[in-house]
């Protein structure tokens, strides 16, 4: 319908005013941009708006068996066209959404469902996100708790012996730094003497 209206508009436009060939060509090319709208033409073949609405919903729900990842509405492969025709036929015959789903699954398998059924073979698929989320939360809680405990533990945990050992190490490190600093001075001096 939209396309028709658009075509009428372009005809009116063409009749009403002088339009150059170039403009007309441009208009034609622009109308190609509206290609996705042509999909809607099929809707008009259904007898009632309610059926059209369900049809629009259903063709987006099923996956084209031939394509990698396109639903029936998006795909222009012959099999998708056939399945859309079939869904329209079933809708007109008064089939329920569940019946249409069964019809397609009986022929093309669970593959066509974008929303897999909840059953023993798909429990993993359905439950994995929730399980992973809970697992992730548990890990975060665990890490945060341990860090808190760790911080409070370091404040009291150094024994006297350890403090002595720490001071000894720090002293040794300071000595080491002094020595390397001296050595650097020595290596730097000769060049100064030369100049």
């Amino acid at each position: 319908m939209i396309v028709e209206r658009q075509q009428n508009a372009s005809v009116y436009f063409l009749r009403g005013r002088f339009v150059s060939f170039r403009k007309a060509t441009l208009l034609l090319l622009l109308s190609i941009l509206c290609l996705p709208v042509w999909g809607l033409i099929e809707v008009d073949r259904l007898s009632s708006p309610a059926l059209s609405e369900r049809y629009q919903y259903l063709v987006a729900e099923y996956r084209c068996p031939k394509c990698q990842n396109q639903n029936l509405a998006e795909s222009d492969s012959p099999i998708s066209i056939d399945l859309r025709t079939e869904i329209r036929r079933l809708l007109e015959e008064g089939a329920s959404d569940a019946q249409i789903s069964d019809y397609l699954v009986a022929r093309y398998g669970e593959f066509v469902l974008y929303r897999p059924r909840v059953q023993s073979s798909t429990y993993l698929l359905w439950l994995a996100p929730a399980v992973l989320l809970v697992l992730g939360l548990l890990i975060v809680v665990f890490i945060v708790r341990r860090q808190k405990r760790g911080v409070s533990a370091t404040q009291t945990s150094l024994s006297e012996d350890e403090k002595v050992a720490l001071q000894a190490l720090l002293g040794a490190a300071e000595n080491f730094q002094d020595k390397t600093a001296n050595r650097q001075d020595k290596t730097a001096n000769p060049s100064e003497a030369k100049s």
Binding site: P65, K66, I79, D82, L83, E86, R107, Y108, G109
Partner: peptide
């Protein structure tokens, strides 16, 4: 018309 093909689940 591909009617049997559809019932068989032929997709190409």
């Amino acid at each position: 018309t591909g009617g049997l093909g559809l019932d068989l689940g032929v997709f190409g």
